[in-house]
Design a protein around this nucleic acid. Structure first.
Lengths: 217, 217
DNA sequence: GTCTATAGTCGGATAGAC
DNA sequence: GTCTATCCGACTATAGAC
């Protein structure tokens, strides 16, 4: 069985992520989504039960795409984290941050991000899906690594805030994309720009982690 | 002249920022905005020429609010930056970051952020207004301070990326608010939570700036 | 499963009363 | 300046042909 002709519900999901991300649940129109997916509007009713069902399915679709994209960095990070010692924890955290930078700079994440940020700032039931499937795991993983690095000098809540701030350094390059392009003069973020971002965020993160390590009494 | 009863166009602007931020330009309805502002829909036509005019006016309104809120931190930072030396530049940058954290944690920035992030990820003419009035100045200011701190070891483009990443640490606490609340267990971000965020971002930023200073040959 | 046709609601713009 | 009344297009949902 070839995978060439995408099933109609797959095409609906992809266009739904795009349109809902741009215009929101009430702003997007099922007419436009169906038309862009090359089908009739009533297909949405048939496959997803209606507009809201399609919206939640779009959230699950995004979560699955991100998990797929994170699979390799996460397993590499976990392998590194299996070793003992603070250096292993640092390497593991850097691998996770690298994976996150990869997503934030990839062009495919643009529609995901529009959808997700909307949910972050005005959450609906879709946020529960996204949090449980994507954010929670990353936050837990990064927090536990930071606590290993910080030892007993670092409380769990402090570690959580540090993890959020560290990821924020990469998040800005997706979420404030228009400002990034204007200030840098870039027209797009491709391989060389990603390398520059990676170098910046890596050096910052190393500086932050060294300062945690250096905080020992 | 008292300022007590807000003029109808002021009420329209505030509700417009909220509704456009939540639902976008096409998702929000002028009927709903007018109703929430306590007036007739045709007032929007009269005062702003239509839906699009109101949208651009909302962007200008946000820019004015943010500039007002940044006035004091910016002048403090500029005063600190007037002194010679790297330490003065570091103090000035920290003051700017502090001001930015203040906005990102303030509850009043929630509607501004919804509107602005939407423009960042799918820019319209409103982004030109926001960039020119708000982002450009902050980016330039922070970049020039970073170049003073880095000396000739730091290129302008590097400094720009560093500025973006540093601000990203604070941005995440507004833009990924739902995730922040879930992972920390907080129900809101008020004074004590802001203090914790401030401590985290300050310590990270100092570590980053020290690493730049330490990069000298 | 996918389509067309239809019903009922709500959208923005505009004209005109006051 | 602010309101009400009206126009017409676009929306979601649903019924039913094939």
């Amino acid at each position: 069985m070839s995978t060439r002709p995408p099933a109609i519900d797959d095409r609906l999901l992809n266009t739904a992520v795009d349109q809902f991300g741009r215009f929101g649940l009430e702003g997007a129109s099922t007419r436009a989504i169906a038309a862009a997916a090359g089908t009739a509007m009533s297909s949405i009713t048939y496959h997803f039960g209606g507009k809201e069902g399609l919206y939640l399915a779009a959230a699950r679709h995004i979560a699955a795409c991100i998990r797929e994209r994170l699979r390799e960095p996460v397993s590499r990070s976990s392998a590194l984290a299996a070793a003992d010692g603070i250096d292993a924890a640092i390497d593991a955290l850097m691998a996770t941050v690298d994976g996150f930078i990869g997503i934030m700079t990839a062009s495919e994440s643009a529609p995901w991000a529009r959808f997700m940020v909307r949910e972050q700032m005005a959450p609906t039931a879709a946020f529960d899906i996204l949090y449980a499937e994507v954010m929670e795991g990353m936050a837990r993983h990064a927090t536990s690594l930071l606590m290993r690095i910080g030892g007993d000098r670092l409380g769990e809540q402090e570690a959580r805030l540090k993890a959020l701030a560290i990821f924020g350094q990469a998040l800005v390059f997706r979420v404030a994309r228009a400002t990034v392009l204007r200030t840098t003069g870039w027209t797009d973020i491709t391989a060389p720009e990603t390398a520059a971002i990676r170098a910046t965020v890596r050096s910052h993160t190393i500086a932050i982690l060294e300062s945690i390590r250096g905080d020992r009494p």
